[in-house]
Amino acid sequence: MDNLPQLSDGLYLDISEFAHTTPHWFQKIAEVWTELGLLLFGVLFVAGWWRSRRGSSDAMALALLAPLATAFGYVVSEGLKSLVDEERPCRAVAGAPVSLVACPQHGDWSFPSNHSAIAGAAAVALALSWRGMVWLTAPMALLMAFSRVFVGVHYPHDVTVGLLAGGAVAFVAVKAGRRPVLALVETARSSRSGAVVWCVGRGVRSHASARPVGARHGAR
């Protein structure tokens, strides 16, 4: 593991030097995106939950699992970070340009990238819970990971492992949690508590229940 930073030094330097040749406004966009992307994933979680309130119980279960699976991805990434005490490249790479954002203090280790792990986990979890969303979440996650190298606070291998680990953990978490969470959603939807039912929604209404009583039994 100690050799990984050395293997990434050249690519890190290339990206860092390229970053300093870009216009100031582009650098600012990268600086903002490196944090704003996480907020946008959060917005997608809320949107996915809201749209699933009128969907099937399975759709609601997947929508609820998406942020939970992402949280698991972060926990695994943080656990790996505490095991691999890798110094940040903005401090360790000789001759590297000054990072575009403040270099994290010593002890805030570099491997893997938590931002990338969260992005990878969120991209996979949202793709599993929202049909077609992968075409948005995958580019978002890749841009998030690249931005962490671009602003100078991570090696390329940090973000690559972060994306893969976060995505893998989220996939397993969603698959493992789908059935138990589905059971909880179905129980909640049959609850007598209005607040509980509002949180999970009433789901899809059948055509029979949507028709007037007279229409079901025939007009007399």
Rank of each mutant, 00 (worst) to 15 (best):
M144W: 01
A138E: 03
S193F: 07
V46H: 09
H106N: 08
A195V: 13
G73M: 12
L4D: 06
L164P: 05
R88C: 06
V159P: 06
A61V: 04
V204Y: 02
S209K: 11
P139K: 05
Q27I: 03
A102H: 10
A92C: 04
W109G: 05
P112V: 02
S129R: 08
W135R: 14
A141R: 08
S129F: 04
V75E: 11
A219F: 14
C103E: 06
A173Q: 10
V153F: 04
L62G: 05
V134M: 12
T22H: 01
F111M: 12
K28A: 07
V172L: 15
A47V: 13
Q6Y: 09
L36S: 09
S206N: 07
L100Q: 06
P97R: 07
V98S: 14
F18C: 02
W135Y: 06
A127S: 15
D158R: 10
M133D: 00
S191F: 13
P212V: 00
V159W: 09
T21Q: 13
D14M: 13
V151Y: 00
C90L: 10
P212I: 02
S8C: 07
E186N: 11
A219M: 05
D85E: 15
V185P: 12
G166A: 04
F150Y: 14
S8Y: 01
R189G: 09
C199R: 12
L38V: 06
H24G: 01
L126G: 08
G95F: 08
A119I: 02
D85R: 15
A61L: 08
V101Q: 12
H157G: 05
L7D: 01
A123E: 08
K175D: 00
W130V: 12
G48I: 04
L44Y: 03
A94E: 15
A195W: 14
G201Y: 12
F146Y: 15
C103R: 06
F41M: 06
R51Y: 06
Y12C: 06
R148V: 02
N114T: 13
L40E: 08
D85N: 15
L128A: 08
L44K: 02
S99V: 11
V153L: 10
G10N: 11
G167H: 10
K175S: 05
V134E: 15
L38Q: 06
V172G: 10
H106P: 13
T160P: 00
